[in-house]
Computed example of a mutant assay.
Amino acid sequence: MGDPSEATYDLAAAGDDAVRLARELVRRDSTNRGGGEGDERATAEFAAEALTDAGLTPRILEPAHRRSNVVVRVPGTDPDASALLLHAHLDVVPARAEEWSVPPFGGEVADCPVTGAPSLWGRGTVDMKNTIAVATAVIRHWARSGLRPRRDIVLALVADEEDSAVFGADWLVREHAQLFEGCRVGIGER
């Protein structure tokens, strides 16, 4: 990458990108009310667009209307290395606005009352829109910097984790197992 000051700038830009992506993800209401009632489509479209900007070709897959999943493979440099699955969920649990001190889907940055540090507030900021934003920002940073991981990385952003996974991970592995070919290790929430 050249001189270290360029690397620092690039990493700072990636951090700023992660914050911007997280704010935009939170602003897209992907509430899962359970019993099949949910809508991850806007969040999936935003994530897919951000990954497309990195030169990738993500797939939006829906087992039912607006129950959207995103899967993309980031090619690695070593074709013999097993692939890594990185998965996160697009849906969030319901938020009652009257119980929040900020709009739950506002994606606002405000000082934390405990630490005083600026913090991102909104539904999904710690479960798991933050993870989606960071993973996407890293992938975008790699693309801008001409970097590639050693192994393929399969990023799966799934629907319906907050309920049954019937419209998300369960459906993907039953109907689209080929997308996970070569994955030997997975990293996720649990």
Rank of each mutant, 00 (worst) to 15 (best):
N130S: 15
T136E: 12
R184S: 11
M128Y: 02
P104W: 07
W121K: 11
V138S: 03
R73K: 10
L172I: 11
D111Y: 05
A50S: 15
V185W: 13
P104G: 05
A133K: 05
H141V: 10
R96V: 14
D78H: 09
A18E: 02
G182C: 08
N130R: 01
C183T: 14
E189L: 15
C183V: 14
E40V: 04
A156C: 09
H176E: 13
L90A: 03
E45F: 05
E98P: 04
R67C: 05
T57E: 13
S5G: 06
R20L: 13
E45N: 08
I187M: 13
I139H: 07
A13T: 08
V93T: 09
T77N: 08
D163K: 06
S164C: 12
G168Y: 05
L51R: 05
A143N: 05
R96P: 01
L25F: 13
S145C: 13
I132H: 01
L90W: 03
R23N: 04
E161T: 09
G122A: 10
G2M: 08
L25S: 05
V93R: 07
G55M: 07
S5A: 15
S119N: 11
F105W: 12
E98G: 09
S5F: 14
D10F: 13
F105Y: 14
A12G: 05
I60R: 02
R174V: 10
I60T: 04
R59E: 14
L147A: 12
A95N: 05
S101Y: 08
G122E: 10
E6P: 00
R144Q: 12
I60E: 01
P63G: 11
